[in-house]
Design a binder for these strands. Structure first.
Lengths: 136, 136
DNA sequence: TTGCGTGCAAAGGTTTTGCATGGCA
DNA sequence: TGCCATGCAAAACCTTTGCACGCAA
């Protein structure tokens, strides 16, 4: 983004209001449409692409064949987080935990691989959905 | 698959020959085509879908917006694996390590979340690519 | 023979691209 | 004014579905 435009401001605003969530491009598009500040889908995609390129935003592959999700990178908040995504309900959990660092350290030292925690999402079942599965 | 067919055998064969790799549906399709045993894309997709349904094969979201990857589940070999995928060179590493279980246990006990190790891929930089990045 | 399997073509959904217009600096 | 940004429509993906024909059991 070289220029400041109404659209670029709005997209960033939505991302900031949803720091704790994974949004799809379409969700951003619809949110803005509903609030009476429509921005073209193409524009949403193009901004997300640029924001990812300069690491302002992170892109996550949607669990299955679903669409990709985006989220503000926000290094200071998510550095020591796991991102846990429930494959049943789709919710995203940010779990503050020193274990992630222990794990990264271990993998780096023993296996020579630098894990990028920010790109990594652990898939599984959240407490609620795990209980439901047991009952069914 | 109720019937044994030329196609089902071929697809399984490719998967077995590539136990250590993540293959896309298209790669499977092309591999078979090149070896003179063509199988329709639709058939490849349909077999993969069924193989995933009965847990013979695992499906992974392709790192970016790319296509999904498939791999033989092979419980005995991958139960205690990390799947490490290098975001630079795209290679997949299977890292045998008890840490994964420790991690899963911790998350289950402390955070009430059941991690599905088989669906989870840790993204980052492999040894080789990390070195190259340092030099540039 | 029965009914699943196959593969072409077409549809579906998401993301990208072409192009003329609009708006920031 | 110059150039990037916008957004419509169309294209380009990947994947799924419809349907007639083929083949395993």
């Amino acid at each position: 983004m070289t220029y400041k435009t109404r659209q670029s401001a709005l997209i960033l605003q939505v991302l900031e209001e949803n720091r704790d969530r994974h949004l799809t491009a379409e969700e951003i598009y619809l949110l803005l449409k509903e609030r009476g500040e429509p921005v073209g889908q193409t524009t949403v995609y193009r901004h997300l692409e640029k924001l990812c390129a300069d690491a302002t935003v992170r892109k996550y592959a949607g669990g299955d064949g679903d669409s990709a999700c985006f989220q503000l990178a926000d290094a200071k908040n998510c550095k020591m987080h796991y991102h846990l995504k429930c494959t049943a309900c789709g919710r995203l959990f940010h779990t503050e935990c020193a274990y992630l660092n222990t794990l990264s350290e271990h993998i780096k030292n023993e296996h020579g691989f630098l894990v990028d925690g920010s790109k990594t999402v652990l898939y599984g079942l959240c407490k609620t959905c795990a209980k439901e599965k047991q009952h069914s």
